[in-house]
Simulated assay, not measured.
Amino acid sequence: MAVIPPSPPLAPSHRPITPASEGDYRANRLFRHMAPDEIEALAPRIEHLHYGKGELIVQRLDESGGIHLLLKGALLANQYARSGREVGYRRIPAGSYFGEISAIDGLPRSANIVALEDVRLARLPQPLIRTLFERSPHFMRAILEDLASLTRSLTDRLFELNAVSVACRVDIELLRMATSAGGDGQQATIHPCPTHAELAVLVGSQREVVTRELNRLASLKIISQTGRTLRILNLPALADEIERIGGEA
């Protein structure tokens, strides 16, 4: 593959920070199939950004293009109904990315992206994305694999919203986050864990219902929480509990 020539620097959409203080964009899963020299060639055209907790990074129906790589922190993809009700689509952890759908079809953004804590991002501008679409089959392979995974995940969530109880949805979401956090198959640590209100948005419920279920799991010695750290003490027991109350682990 020909090395992508650098383009003139673009003005960042939000507060720029020094790339040296950033996490390594090269470790993002979007580049997992690309050769090191391909990834290195992107550096002059990547913008580094910082947002504080609660800030809106992308607004639904925005026409800004490009793909954002999350280097540090956590994000929430959401949307608000006219009634004001917040609907959460997914929590985006460090090492992931967003914006690929608009980058592919050129249409406005399909959801809001909000910082759940202080975050650092790297942005691939739309002209660079178009070049990668045309010249890098390894980049396209990662995009296609992740779109397939996202479709499966959203299908699962749609089923859960219509077929299982709120308590079961909470348990399933905890298992998802534990799997993403890694561990030894028996225990996992989620840090920073979402607030009860944030978790309620993700499972389509109210904070009080989520609190009750977390307290129940704590009483069973399946989880424990200290501050923003949530520990899954017994992953097999959590999976068994999901099966017991009507879901699929």
Score class of each variant (00 low, 15 high):
residue 157 R to L: 04
residue 68 H to V: 03
residue 172 I to S: 11
residue 115 A to Y: 05
residue 177 M to I: 01
residue 186 Q to W: 00
residue 80 Y to V: 12
residue 173 E to D: 01
residue 72 K to C: 02
residue 100 E to N: 11
residue 150 L to V: 07
residue 122 A to E: 11
residue 70 L to F: 04
residue 103 A to L: 14
residue 80 Y to E: 15
residue 119 V to R: 02
residue 116 L to R: 05
residue 93 P to H: 06
residue 184 D to M: 01
residue 104 I to Y: 13
residue 157 R to G: 03
residue 97 Y to V: 04
residue 112 N to C: 06
residue 150 L to I: 06
residue 149 S to W: 01
residue 118 D to K: 06
residue 82 R to N: 15
residue 134 E to M: 09
residue 159 F to R: 14
residue 143 I to L: 15
residue 73 G to V: 02
residue 117 E to F: 02
residue 180 S to C: 02
residue 71 L to P: 03
residue 127 P to G: 07
residue 86 E to M: 14
residue 164 V to I: 15
residue 118 D to H: 10
residue 114 V to N: 08
residue 84 G to T: 14
residue 129 I to H: 13
residue 148 A to S: 14
residue 163 A to Q: 14
residue 108 P to T: 06
residue 68 H to K: 02
residue 91 R to P: 00
residue 141 R to Q: 14
residue 90 R to E: 09
residue 113 I to L: 07
residue 150 L to Y: 02
residue 179 T to G: 08
residue 175 L to S: 09
residue 117 E to G: 05
residue 88 G to V: 06
residue 76 L to W: 00
residue 83 S to D: 15
residue 71 L to E: 10
residue 75 L to S: 04
residue 173 E to G: 00
residue 162 N to R: 15
residue 102 S to T: 10
residue 94 A to W: 00
residue 113 I to W: 03
residue 163 A to D: 08
residue 81 A to Q: 14
residue 132 L to R: 08
residue 143 I to R: 00
residue 162 N to S: 15
residue 90 R to D: 07
residue 170 V to G: 05
residue 182 G to H: 02
residue 74 A to W: 04
residue 96 S to T: 05
residue 85 R to T: 14
residue 76 L to A: 07
residue 66 G to I: 10
residue 122 A to D: 10
residue 117 E to M: 09
residue 120 R to I: 01
residue 98 F to N: 03
residue 124 L to G: 00
residue 177 M to T: 03
residue 121 L to G: 06
residue 132 L to E: 09
residue 82 R to P: 13
residue 159 F to H: 14
residue 156 D to K: 11
residue 85 R to H: 12
residue 92 I to P: 03
residue 111 A to W: 00
residue 103 A to G: 15
residue 142 A to G: 08
residue 174 L to Y: 04
residue 76 L to K: 00
residue 185 G to S: 03
residue 149 S to T: 09
residue 82 R to K: 15
residue 171 D to V: 02
residue 75 L to A: 04
residue 156 D to C: 07
residue 139 F to E: 12
residue 108 P to F: 05
residue 134 E to F: 03
residue 112 N to Y: 08
residue 168 C to V: 11
residue 171 D to R: 15
residue 103 A to V: 13
residue 143 I to A: 02
residue 107 L to S: 13
residue 104 I to N: 10
residue 177 M to A: 06
residue 138 H to D: 15
